[in-house]
Computed example of a mutant assay.
Amino acid sequence: MTAREREMAARRRAAILTDLGLHGSVRVQEIADRFGVSLVTARRDVVALARQGRLQRVHGGGVLVPTEADDGTRHGVIGVVIPSGHGYFQEILAGARQGAREAGVRLILATSYYDEAEESRIVDRLRRARVDALLIATARPTDQRLPSWFATLDRPVVLVERQCAARGVDYVRSEHEAGVEVALDHLAQEGHERVALAVLSSTPTSVRLIAGFETALAARSGMHAPFPPVTFVWEDQDLSQRNAALESLLDSCAATGTTAVIVHSDDDAVALLGLALERGLRIPQDLSIVAYDDVLAALGSVPLTAVAPPKYDVGRLAVSVAARRVTAGDRAATQRVRLVPRLVRRRSTAPPGTPPPGTTRTAPHDAGDRS
């Protein structure tokens, strides 16, 4: 098995475990259909995960490994509120399910849509369901102000991928500011001096990415942003505004000699890659791209180098914090946990002007188009 095949197998198996955590079971046929692999390959994935103790094989697929916490003995019920249909939070939920098994608690899931009114209704419904604690990726992105329902909730709340400076508020989040610095460190090592940032402005993560980007660049010599961070929206499946912003980003990169760009989120990084290739740009020879989130980055036509927040660990630790609150109450110390993302290097970054594979720097005009 080549290094590329091993990487794809690892990514596929991580996704299988995410589905297992969400649904409790996986089927070989569904794995084959989803990833476009043979039944033999899908079955091999299930066998490998079973040998690692990550799932239990059954006829036609696999199920969660039984644990003591699955014998009906539970020590609390925790409500989980996350944005609907977002791949990023599916991995957080998989970690939360693992944390629930370890803590002997049961999870009740509710999905929101980054809408404060809907979020308030969901929280009220979970209160009536008598949950013992709440994990929530709230729609409110600011650090200082909490949603109105927070003051009236009479049970522990743990913020997930959010934070608040208010007294006694627990949270577990990825330190996205440090994630941007991880990306800039990598690009600096590659020799990039002019670097841009583009973010999906409709998510709370964008605020932290911009802050981290500006702070990190201010502390560096030899690297700068030729223009302010680009923000764009993606609403109601209308991509025209997003694509226009990305096209403008490419124009600005060309006009300023910018050689690398960090893009949040993965969907938008893949879109930028496609627009760049349509222009005849070579990735990474003409422009290096770093995706932020690492949900879909490996599936780009040029697999994208990405910053990967520790999503699974965020979910797992958040449940642990909530379970401790349930058992210890006010005696438990406030916990504010920040986990640092890591860089996953793939083929979309290289030193500026690097010739394509199989060529030399003495004849860059023979490089051709990698796309």
Rank of each mutant, 00 (worst) to 15 (best):
M1Q: 13
A3I: 15
E5R: 15
A14T: 13
A15I: 01
L17R: 07
D19E: 05
S25E: 01
R27L: 04
D33S: 09
D33A: 11
R34N: 01
R34L: 03
F35V: 04
V37E: 04
V40M: 11
T41P: 14
V47D: 06
R51K: 10
G53I: 02
H59V: 06
G61A: 00
E68N: 08
G72M: 03
H75V: 04
G79F: 05
V80M: 00
I82Q: 02
G85R: 13
Q98Y: 01
E102I: 05
A103S: 06
L109E: 00
D115L: 04
A117N: 06
E119Y: 06
S120T: 13
D124M: 09
D124G: 13
D132N: 15
A137L: 02
T138P: 07
Q144S: 09
R145L: 00
L146W: 01
P147S: 00
A151V: 04
T152I: 04
L153M: 03
E161A: 12
R162T: 03
A166C: 06
R173S: 12
H176D: 09
A178C: 08
G179W: 10
E181D: 12
A183F: 09
L187F: 12
E190L: 14
H192R: 10
V195M: 10
V195S: 11
V195F: 11
L197C: 12
L200Y: 14
S201Y: 11
T203C: 10
T205I: 14
V207W: 14
V207S: 11
E214N: 10
T215W: 02
A218C: 01
A219H: 09
T231E: 09
F232M: 06
W234A: 09
D236S: 12
R242D: 02
S248N: 13
L250K: 12
L250S: 09
C253D: 02
C253E: 00
T258R: 14
T259Q: 08
D267Q: 15
D267C: 14
D268S: 15
A269C: 14
A271I: 08
A271W: 11
G280D: 04
I283A: 07
P284E: 00
P284Q: 03
Q285S: 15
D286G: 12
D293Q: 12
D294H: 15
L296T: 10
V307P: 15
K311R: 11
V314W: 01
L317H: 11
L317C: 05
V319L: 03
A323F: 08
T327F: 10
T334K: 12
R336T: 08
P341R: 08
R342K: 15
V344C: 07
R347H: 11
S348V: 08
P351E: 01
P352T: 07
G358I: 14
T359K: 13
R361G: 14
R370E: 06
